[in-house]
């Protein structure tokens, strides 16, 4: 269960740009510092959203993937110049081990970012963003999201009536089970198609597709959205400049490059850190504000 979040209350476009840019940067930058920052920031944000206990559960869940990827890379890839040891005359190199670790970190942080995305970008926000660019497809998605609970409800009714007729089987062999489920599906389809025509006609009667009709949106683009959006865009720009100047590029093969710790490079690392922990900062700030307000009462 997710608790109320302050970051979530921003306009969907701001949220979407944040997630798109962080996921893009995570997939794109293989520099170890950048990967570590991304992993830490995604874990932090997730812990503010679902709590530490749930985060640990998720981490346990991603552990096998992390291990699989970090072990399989050095086993399959023998690139690199520093052999650690040999298996069947095939060298296990330092470089490919580190590359495997980096890729595993990348995948796990992408999974954590997507977990945050799924928690924050609910379907209404998704439709708000795409309602203007792909109005009809967004409409289809929104109708479907409404239809799913309706169909589930209908499935329950159909299976109840099938049960009273003695035609629904929870037991028996797989073929019987599948057959009774398919009968339900078939009944459901008839109902859903007929019903959809009603909906379509009522849409038409209410003037769907006529000129000058607007779409309703509950989200307002406030001043604070502009502030946050400009901060995010500025940080994205700084990071792109850093990438162009090669501060965020890193090579694992044939031998690993050195980590640049000059002042200028550190500036770019910090700007990336700021971008990725922006939502966590907002959460903590809002939390502190709430605590101080509570104590005043």
């Amino acid at each position: 269960m997710m608790k109320a979040s302050a970051f979530e209350s921003y306009h969907p476009i701001v949220l979407f740009i944040f997630f798109a840019s962080t996921i893009f940067f995570t997939m794109f930058l293989t520099h170890p510092i950048y990967l570590a920052i991304s992993l830490a920031a995604s874990a932090l944000l997730l812990s503010t959203l679902i709590g530490l206990k749930e985060l640990l559960k998720t981490t346990l869940y991603t552990m096998p993937i992390f291990l699989l990827i970090s072990i399989s890379n050095p086993v399959f890839s023998h690139r690199g110049v520093t052999p650690l040891f040999y298996i069947n005359y095939n060298p296990i190199t330092l470089e490919s081990t580190l590359y495997g670790l980096a890729m595993a970190t990348m995948i796990v942080s992408i999974m954590l970012w997507f977990r945050c995305y799924n928690l924050i970008m609910t379907s209404d926000k998704f439709i708000c963003i795409f309602g203007n660019t792909i109005p009809i497809l967004a409409l289809i998605i929104s109708i479907s999201l409404r239809l799913i609970p309706r169909l589930k409800d209908q499935i329950k009714r159909i299976s109840n009536s099938q049960r009273t007729l003695g035609m629904y089987t929870d037991t028996g062999n797989i073929l019987e089970k599948v057959k009774s489920r398919i009968r339900i599906l078939s009944i459901l389809i008839t109902w859903a198609l007929e019903n959809s025509i009603d909906t379509a006609d009522s849409m038409k009667a209410r003037g769907y597709g006529l000129k000058n009709r607007t779409t309703f949106s509950i989200f307002k683009f406030d001043k604070r959205d502009i502030v946050l959006l400009s901060i995010i865009l500025l940080l994205i720009l700084i990071n792109i400049i850093g990438e162009i100047q090669k501060y965020s590029s890193y090579h694992y093969y044939p031998y690993i490059s050195n980590i640049d710790l000059s002042l200028k490079a550190t500036f770019y690392y910090i700007s990336y850190l700021l971008l990725t922990i922006l939502p966590t900062i907002i959460e903590i700030k809002e939390d502190l504000k709430w605590q101080s307000l509570k104590s005043k009462i």
Partner: peptide
């Protein structure tokens, strides 16, 4: 609308 609903269903 009818086509939209059909695909959606």
């Amino acid at each position: 609308p009818r086509e939209i609903l059909c695909i959606s269903v």
